[in-house]
Every structure is written in structure tokens, then in C-alpha cells.
Design a binder for these strands. Structure first.
Length: 273
DNA sequence: CCTAAGTCCTGAGTGC
DNA sequence: TGCACTCAGGACTTAG
């Protein structure tokens, strides 16, 4: 589910649900089944009683900022957070809050991550070392930047634009959409993408991510905002999931193929180059 | 049977 | 032969 717009949507939802009053962590309970990465138990016990200061987003990660530590959450493919004191199948984390509410993490496929680490370790945390710029936050993300990153790369441009070391936040849905918006064929070798195409791609990436944030993300099957509601950017998708449907611009049938292991969609007429 | 929003790991291949 | 790097493919898991 969650690419940058979905994580940003969850972050904003959590902020409005949890804030602005002071709330602190009473206890954190983990389910029996493990997520992909899990916190050290002794660190978990250290955060009891700490106040929740903020909810942040770094790339596709959520960070609950406490007094001395961060709780890091990655939603994987099917993760979601909610406030609700009932229990459901696939609930894996319960965070008991000082106001009596319970913040619960739900994740059917358990591709998600949950970790705890001291604030001082943020910059050196292996999860964040080597990540590219954030398109909706960093001015360093530009066409010229992409052009530099694409030098000497024979991998398809779609693989590179989804590579979190090149740029964070872009997953399979928005990679397809951004390439369509900039009329670039997803199979094109990155090194052959022109500087001008890079400008278009950078702008399309920023635009599509911001538009999706405004829509509260894309809900295909699992994605839920922190309040439980769904996004609605799926109503505006131009190519993703539209195999054999007609291009909204030129009426040619949309094609699909696996690129870099992920299903990819493009218009063979609009995205020749 | 097939597919799925993400990330990490392994192994093959290339160039030096 | 070895090192560093790139790239392709699979693994993880459950639901529909």
C-alpha cells in the first residue's frame, strides 16, 4: 500500500488524532507473530512513561518522536494504524496511551517494521543512511539531480525512480503515473533519458505525489488512513492498473509488462521515448 | 490458480 | 583470482 502520499496521510491523521494535548506511552505490547523487523525488548521498556512529542515522516517511514527515543514504523504493503480499543485479526502492536486510548498496528502480510532507537541514532541509523532526497520536501530533488543519478545506469528508468537511494517515496503506483505524465517509456535505460526528460520526470513526480496527498492517498485494497477512511486518488490514476484500457489522452490501449519485478503500465503511443 | 502499495538478500555478470 | 559494483530474481505473507 503505502508510498509517500499514503505515509504522509497516515502521519497527518495520527497528528490530528493524537495531538495537540500531551499524551504519553503507558506500555507497548507486541503480538506473538513477528513483523519483518522488531524492536529490542529492553529498549521498548525504556520508553514507558515518555511523552509523545510529534509524529514525523522520513521517506516512507513514520517516526513517533518521544522524549529520548523514536518509535519507527514502516507499513510494508498492508500496515495501518488506528485508535480503537477492540481487537482484530492481524493486530500486532498495541500502544497504551495515558489518555486511555490504544494505538493499534494492523498488518495482514507482516511486511512492516517496528523499531525503537535513541534519538541520537537517527542520522546514523542504517535505515536512513544513503536515502535520496524527498520530492515533496527537499529542493535538492530536481531534473538535474536525476540526470546526474542516471549517468551510467543501464537499468530501466522505472527501476531507478523507485530506488530509494535515488529518490524516496516513489513506489510502483506513482512511478507508473509519473512516467506517464512525463511521456517516458518505463523500459528506457536510465542513461538514455535526456536532461529535458529528467526535468519533466522530476516535476511530474513532485506533482503526482502532492496531488495524491491532497486526495488522502490511493486505496487499492488495504490502505486505510489513521482515522480508518480510504484515500481517493485511485479515481484519478491514469495508467496504473489499466492494462488494455484506453489511454485517456490518445485512446491507444494501455500496455503492461513486468519491469524490475513489478507490474508496469504505459501508453505505447504517448510513451514511445 | 493468479495478483498485490515494499524491502532485503543472494547470485550472476561485468570491468578493472 | 579477487574486488566492487550493477542488475535480476526470489523470499517474506495473507487475502481476494
Amino acid at each position: 500500500m503505502p508510498e509517500l502520499p499514503e505515509v504522509e496521510t497516515v502521519k497527518r491523521g495520527l497528528e490530528s488524532i493524537l495531538g495537540p494535548g500531551p499524551v504519553s506511552i503507558v506500555q507497548i505490547q507486541l503480538g506473538v507473530k513477528k513483523l519483518r523487523y522488531n524492536p529490542q525488548i529492553e529498549l521498548l521498556s525504556q520508553v514507558k512513561g515518555q511523552q509523545l512529542r510529534a509524529v514525523r515522516r522520513q521517506a516512507k517511514y513514520l517516526l513517533f518522536e518521544l522524549e529520548s527515543h523514536y518509535l519507527l514504523s514502516h507499513l510494508g504493503m498492508t500496515g495501518s494504524w488506528r485508535i480503537e480499543n477492540d481487537q482484530r485479526k492481524h493486530d500486532h502492536i498495541q500502544i497504551y496511551l495515558s489518555d486511555g486510548r490504544i494505538l493499534t498496528y494492523h498488518d495482514a502480510r507482516r511486511f512492516g517494521m517496528f523499531e525503537v532507537f535513541p534519538k541520537s541514532a537517527l542520522k546514523s541509523h542504517p535505515r536512513f543512511v544513503g536515502l535520496g532526497p524527498d520530492p515533496v520536501v527537499d529542493l535538492g530533488f530536481s531534473g538535474d539531480y536525476l540526470y546526474q543519478k542516471f549517468r551510467g545506469k543501464t537499468a530501466p528508468v522505472k527501476v531507478l525512480i523507485m530506488d530509494q537511494r535515488v529518490v524516496v517515496g516513489v513506489g510502483n503506483i506513482y512511478a507508473n503515473e509519473a512516467l506517464y505524465l512525463s511521456s517516458i517509456n518505463p523500459l528506457k535505460k536510465a542513461s538514455k533519458v535526456t536532461r529535458q526528460q529528467c526535468q519533466l520526470l522530476a516535476k511530474a513526480t513532485v506533482d503526482v505525489l502532492n496531488d495524491a496527498i491532497e486526495c488522502g492517498g490511493t486505496t487499492i485494497s488495504d490502505f486505510k488512513q489513521a482515522g480508518g477512511s480510504e484515500g481517493y486518488f485511485q479515481n484519478f490514476l491514469l495508467v496504473y492498473g489499466r492494462d488494455r484500457e484506453l489511454c485517456r489522452f490518445c485512446d491507444a490501449p494501455i500496455r503492461s509488462a513486468v519491469v524490475g519485478g513489478r507490474n508496469s503500465f504505459w501508453c505505447p503511443r504517448c510513451q514511445k521515448k
